[in-house]
């Protein structure tokens, strides 16, 4: 049966919903609960770097970086982690130094690094990627000793049955990070410059809050007259 589109039909379909009674109360409760759990985690973290990149992130005391270059990298990592925990960063640009990491583990970490922001893969997927499909347990161990958690996203690897699996900072933190990534957008445009960036791009950070427009894809942004940022190259993301 054919249906003819009319304005009345659109208006009928798009009628506002009944206002839910508890909405404001629920939001206010959530606002009180969001007492920046993630910032507390960042306070506990110590970061170490070489001149090449970030080499260790742990919740314990670590030696101070030896050179000025390494100190700058640590500062940059802390800043990027802060933004990430705030839901204002969807990628890390600070380099990591895995040169001291054994070959097998390094391959595991590099595979984990290819899991897109906000997505998850099973341990078996990582095992497959590094060409050792049966080494699922070894993959788990290698990820468990990830020297640079968060930046190499070992938290995006789950058990095949969907179980959360282990995590350096506890499974609660792991599910917290996954929830954070589920609510962090990847692409944002600036309404005044009509440039679309990856969330966390240095030029995007200067954007005023009221100029922020989220897009579902770079293609969508282009379709309404935005152009991709030349600094963060959002077309290459994901």
């Amino acid at each position: 049966m054919k249906t003819v589109l009319t304005d009345d039909m659109l208006k009928g379909y798009f009628q506002p919903d009944a206002e839910p009674g508890q909405l404001a109360r629920q939001v206010l409760l959530a606002a009180r609960a969001s007492a920046q759990e993630s910032e507390k985690l960042l306070d506990r973290l110590a970061i170490q770097a070489t001149a090449e990149g970030i080499s260790l992130i742990r919740a314990q005391r670590l030696e101070k970086p030896a050179t000025a270059g390494a100190r700058r990298l640590v500062e940059r990592a802390r800043e990027e982690l802060y933004e990430y925990f705030q839901g204002k960063r969807a990628f890390f640009s600070v380099p990591v130094d895995l040169s001291e990491t054994p070959d097998f583990q390094r391959r595991v970490l590099e595979a984990a690094r290819r899991i897109p922001f906000g997505e998850v893969r099973p341990y078996a997927w990582v095992a497959q990627k590094i060409g050792h499909p049966r080494a699922v347990r070894a993959v788990g161990t290698a990820l468990g000793r990830n020297p640079v958690p968060f930046i190499v996203p070992c938290h995006r690897v789950l058990q095949s049955g969907g179980g959360i699996g282990g995590y350096l900072f506890g499974s609660e933190t792991k599910s917290g990070l996954l929830a954070l990534e589920r609510t962090t957008p990847i692409y944002e445009g600036c309404a005044s410059t009509h440039i679309v960036c990856r969330v966390g791009c240095s030029s995007g950070r200067r954007m005023r809050a009221d100029n922020r427009v989220v897009f579902a894809s770079v293609q969508d942004a282009r379709s309404v007259g935005y152009r991709p940022c030349k600094v963060c190259k959002p077309s290459r993301a994901a």
Partner: peptide, 12 residues
């Protein structure tokens, strides 16, 4: 902004 990002996740 929230809804568009939710649609992106479904698509990806």
């Amino acid at each position: 902004n929230v809804c568009v990002d939710e649609l992106r996740r479904r698509t990806s």
